[in-house]
Structure formats: C-alpha cells, structure tokens
Computed example of a mutant assay.
Amino acid sequence: MRLNSEAVQGSLADLYEPWRREYGPVVPVELDGGVPAFLVIGHRTLREVCSQESLYSPDSRNWADWRAGRVPNDWPLLPQVAYQEGSTRFLSGPEHRRLRGVLASGLAQVEAASARRYTEWVADRLISRFAPKGRTEVVADYAAPLPLLVMLRLLGLPHEAGEQLLPAIFRLLEGGPGAHRANEEISDIIGRLVVARRAKPDRDLISWLIHGPVDGGPALSDLEVRNLAWLTVMAGAGGTPAGSATPWNASCATRRCTRSSSRAR
C-alpha cells in the first residue's frame, strides 16, 4: 500500500477498513521514495508493539532496511526517523528513563497561568493578521502555527525567532525535497540557544534540561539537550493539524524495524 500525504487525506476509517479486511492489524506499506515499512492499525497490536522493547526496538539503527543500505541518504523522511543521540524516541531502558525523567520534571516547572497568557497572546496576534481580510485558511494561518509557537517559546526561543523558524518546521514535516536543509536550520537555531543557556540560564525548558537535576546518570550534553528539546516540539506538532496533514505520523511506521519485522518481510 502506498502511504503518503495524499493517501491519508479524508477519513482514516475509510482508508483503514479495506486494509483491515485484507491484511489485519499490520499493513505492509511503501512510503515516499519507495521505502518499505509496516503500519500498525490495530489498537491491541499497537499496545503489544509499544510494550515489547526487546523485540520491537525504537532504535532505528536496528532497522533491517537501513542496515542493508536500502534507505537512500537523501530520503526526505530520513531526518524524522534517523537515530538521534539524546532523543528518547530512539532509546529504551535506563537511558530512556534518564532523559524522560529530566524532560518530565522540566515540563512540570511550566506555570500554567503564564503558559495560558502567552497562548492567548499568540492566538490574538495570529487572528489580528487575518481578521481584517474577513477570511483565512484556518489550519495554515492559525491552528498549525499556534501550538508550535507556544512550544518554541517554552523552550526559550523568543517569539520573533519562533516565527522565523516556522517555515523550516513545516518543510521538515512535509517531508519534501527541502526536509534535510530544514532539519539543519532547526538544529542550528536550537543548538545556538543551548549554548547561550548553558552560559546564562533562564526560566525555560532548555535551561532546565541543562542545569536541572538528572536521576540515574550524568548531566545532559549539549547534543542531548538539543535533540530532546526538538523532540518535544515535534511530539506536540504530531498531535495537531501541523502534523496530522503531513507524513510525520505515517513515518512512525518505520520505527518498528526489528527482528520480528525482518522475519515477516
């Protein structure tokens, strides 16, 4: 089954039901660029996959097609699925818990009242841009940028810098030809923020990841902080219109690249 941004438009129920009848809860799919993967569409099966880390490793370096050299280096979705040091998405066991713990404690420091005020301020700012026109594309002009701008501000990025970063984020989420360059732009901006906060901490998530307490291991490196911070933004985008209309969700299928999937193939 060919799976791309065009295929997942409309009702997923209409898309999944014929697949369930033919394949069951695990569907062999082909992502853009001809890269094979498995898409889990059964809830019980998904729970089994996500709970058996020894069999279904989240580390994409174990992916059979990656190890065999069948994934092109210029594959547009590669920045989203290639292993990144310091990203809990690709780790399991004690290392995953170490990073997840400091991230969870950092998010717990966010003051709900301050977050709400800033969210309302961003919402008003976005609305003021299209209100005089009397019409707008709601997803592109409001629903997609709003959560991203809020998450970037929680990291410690000034609002103006967050707005400048949005085009690169959307290019990465779309998984098109500009995805690799967009990934470099994002990494560079967040990397510079990490360096600045290590020298002079502030009341933001980046500063907490650098200077906050870490249970079960050493303090986070700059690379771990950068990748963990970016994962936080991407995780938020994946559950919003910014991610649901892009291959970001579809690409999750490639993370289940283990001995089991190799046998099934």
Rank of each mutant, 00 (worst) to 15 (best):
A179Q: 03
L205I: 14
R198W: 07
A143Y: 06
R226M: 15
H211Q: 04
M151I: 04
V233C: 10
Y56K: 06
K133M: 06
R20H: 14
A123P: 01
P147W: 01
T119A: 08
T246G: 11
T119D: 10
D124M: 09
E48H: 01
L228C: 10
E22W: 08
Y16H: 14
G175S: 12
M234F: 07
V194L: 02
N249A: 13
P36Y: 06
T240R: 15
A229C: 11
P28C: 05
R171T: 11
V35R: 03
H43D: 14
E48N: 03
L107F: 09
L91S: 03
A245D: 14
C257K: 13
V71S: 08
L231A: 11
A68N: 10
P247F: 06
V8N: 03
G217E: 10
G156N: 07
R61G: 09
H211K: 07
S114R: 12
W248E: 02
A82C: 06
P76A: 09
L12K: 06
G217F: 05
W230I: 01
R153G: 00
R135I: 04
L166A: 13
L103M: 15
R256G: 11
D59P: 00
G106F: 05
S207K: 04
T246W: 02
V8I: 14
D59V: 08
P94I: 15
R97S: 14
S87C: 12
N4Q: 05
K200F: 04
I186Y: 02
F90E: 04
W248K: 15
A115F: 01
V26S: 06
S51I: 02
S251C: 11
A13I: 12
G239Q: 13
P58V: 10
V49H: 05
G101W: 01
G217R: 10
V35D: 06
G243W: 00
L205P: 06
Y16I: 14
L149P: 01
Y23C: 11
V138E: 02
E120V: 03
Q84K: 11
M1G: 10
Q9C: 03
S92I: 00
R192F: 00
E6D: 14
R192K: 11
L149W: 00
A64V: 12
G178A: 14
L155P: 02
A68W: 01
L31V: 07
S187L: 09
R117N: 05
E137L: 04
L99C: 10
A112F: 03
L148W: 00
E48D: 10
A7F: 08
R256V: 15
S5R: 15
A250G: 15
R255G: 07
Y118M: 04
E163D: 07
T45N: 07
A242D: 06
P213G: 10
G216A: 08
